[in-house]
Design a binder for these strands. Structure first.
Lengths: 120, 120
DNA sequence: GCATAACGCTACATTATCTGTAGCAAACCG
DNA sequence: CGGTTTGCTACAGATAATGTAGCGTTATGC
């Protein structure tokens, strides 16, 4: 059993507003969510391979995220084992691809930018 | 002072690999990061207004995220007060705009999708 | 059949992080 | 001066993540 009977995913906090974007932002804003989606962007990975890809993150969180991502319909467990993106999940991932280029640009801009507070 | 002297931002875990995308994914994958960026997409907000916009999230995390986001160069504290996106931050936010449409589509697809495990 | 190994997944103590409420010092308003 | 708002911090209690171990199941080799 994947979870205790009657237990539902923590019900995305921000989704109390009913706005889907909030639910999505909340789901993706959990540890390893984005990373998992990212690592799955190519071919499917077994739970263990995914763990390796994610810097050996603890199986506890990974499993939790995987369950949430599966309930959201972004990820699925293939017949023969191994996790992969659904069509929907692939769509979502497309959204993040520009992030890659952005990250490179960002890195190039400033290794350790200045903070500009006003306290003082 | 914004932080204790000598204290640095928790040094993004996944960025140990040196790949900027990992650092970015890690930063954005923290609670409220995405949400803050999202709420700031329009006009600048005071810390308190931002808090309201974020379902009254605790000022502790918000402040922590704001500091990280500022160090990353995505957010800045305006001269006259109020947080806003930098040019870079606006760029990043652009990346997430398609997410809005995606979220709507996602919501329409399935309120509570089926899990397809293989245990049993 | 029996050992070996890999699979998805879970337990659990420790540690890190977030929540919620209260409140401070500085700047602004009159 | 008193009142209000700003950015920001403290701190106890609640929640979530880490790290390590291991379960039950399903191949595979002999």
């Amino acid at each position: 059993m994947a979870k205790k009977p009657g237990t539902t995913t923590p019900r995305v906090r921000a989704s109390r507003s009913g706005r889907p974007i909030m639910a999505l932002l909340d789901l993706l804003g959990r540890r390893w969510s984005l990373r998992i989606l990212w690592e799955l962007r190519g071919e499917p990975l077994t739970s263990r391979a995914l763990r390796s890809a994610c810097d050996e993150a603890s199986p506890t969180v990974l499993q939790a995220r995987l369950t949430e991502l599966r309930e959201a319909g972004f990820v699925e467990l293939g017949e023969g084992g191994g996790y992969g993106l659904t069509a929907l999940g692939r769509d979502l991932c497309e959204t993040f691809m520009p992030l890659h280029r952005f990250a490179e640009r960002w890195k190039a801009l400033s290794p350790s930018p200045r903070l500009r507070g006003r306290s003082g």
